[in-house]
Design a binder for these strands. Structure first.
Lengths: 213, 213
DNA sequence: CATCTTTTGAGAGTTACTTTCACTTGACTG
DNA sequence: CAGTCAAGTGAAAGTAACTCTCAAAAGATG
């Protein structure tokens, strides 16, 4: 994520390819990060988004307010930050280069969502709820999506020999992510009932058919 | 626009169909509104968006800060508010009902843009500049667009006998507006060179072709 | 253990926005 | 045209998200 700048690694002597065995410092940071997020989700579910202040979050997570801002640039980011971008990118780059781009995206989005649903369904639902209810979250989410868009555009451009800045590529991604966003919103507005993945596939079908309503 | 709640009309006795001849009160409000916007645009072009405070805007427009907030809900809205939604809606409802929806949108967007460019080109350019440079503006713009989306969805749904909440309709509009947004961003990022309308048409061609990259 | 570097907390400051209330100023009525 | 009513305005105080600075605390390192 954008807020997670690459920090220096301990120059450990572990075998190459093995994940470096995080020093105490890094482990602590991770714990703090998680504590803040957890506290935030809990407080929000109890009191609502607006009523939950950074001060409360800091207190609940047992850190100072300044620390909260050190870990997350904005209040919205506490809720929205995840690590799915690199995963989606990797998956996309793993698809056969001659697969139609829309099919590649269809595939990786289904996969990412399935994984998310399997491991953190409750969080996804709360997030969706907030996306529907809180304009600030919705807005920030859109920004986040445009980071995702850049990553995906690069991957797609690479494999087709185009520039990642190619207008057509950008429009392609924007349309797909715009549709995805709308489906999620729709799902959230309708009580989160029905199968999200099926609905996404329907939306992609609409796009694939050339938007002939 | 969302921020412009319908205010009471003077029950004037003018001929039906004639625009009511705004009382002094309404005229003054309009002037204030314009003064605030003008001051804002000027200050921003001189100092940049972040460096321009509401207080400065208020002073330049010769009103109090509270009045500024009475006219515009947020700082971003001062820049973004326009009155094109009802126009686009009317135009859309004027298109033949059997015209393919994508063509209708293509047509009305070209028309709206042409009008905007003809009468307020400088404003459009400044707005685009801000959209590229200021995340808050970009975010708010997206929200604004989703208001537009609702209006257009209703119009489109009406003529095809669908519900305005129909997933397919919503996806359709989201994709088109998402593409439009991306083109505008692209145009802005590339020095605002080239013909916006042509680029929009290209983007719509991409959508129409089923997003086969 | 001593030193160096990173992380943290405390505190003060900025600014967008909200709310309240008294005052002014158009608009309508008799 | 005077009086009343409603709408619009300004002043002021308050809230909360974010920023900046600096000194203290705590992990890493030799």
């Amino acid at each position: 994520m954008a807020t997670m700048a690459a920090t220096s690694r301990p120059p450990s002597v572990s075998a190459p390819g093995t994940p470096p065995p995080l020093g105490l410092r890094e482990r602590k940071k991770l714990r703090t990060r998680i504590a803040i997020r957890r506290a935030t989700y809990r407080l929000i579910s109890e009191q609502g988004y607006d009523a939950t202040t950074i001060e409360q979050i800091a207190e609940a997570a047992e850190v100072s307010p300044s620390t909260v801002f050190r870990y997350f640039a904005t209040k919205e980011d506490i809720v929205l930050t995840d690590e799915y971008d690199p995963i989606m990118e990797a998956e996309l780059r793993n698809r056969p280069a001659d697969e139609p781009p829309l099919e590649s995206l269809r595939f990786i989005m289904a996969k990412a969502l399935t994984a998310f649903l399997a491991s953190e369904e409750e969080e996804l639902r709360q997030r969706t709820r907030l996306m529907v209810e809180v304009p600030a979250i919705r807005a920030r989410m859109t920004e986040t999506m445009s980071d995702t868009a850049k990553v995906l555009a690069r991957a797609l451009a690479d494999r087709s020999g185009r520039s990642p800045d190619d207008l057509e590529v950008r429009v392609f991604i924007a349309a797909v992510l715009g549709a995805l966003r709308e489906v999620t919103l729709y799902w959230g507005e309708h009580g989160q009932e029905g199968d999200l993945i099926t609905m996404i596939n329907q939306a992609l079908d609409t796009l694939e058919g050339g938007l002939k309503l």
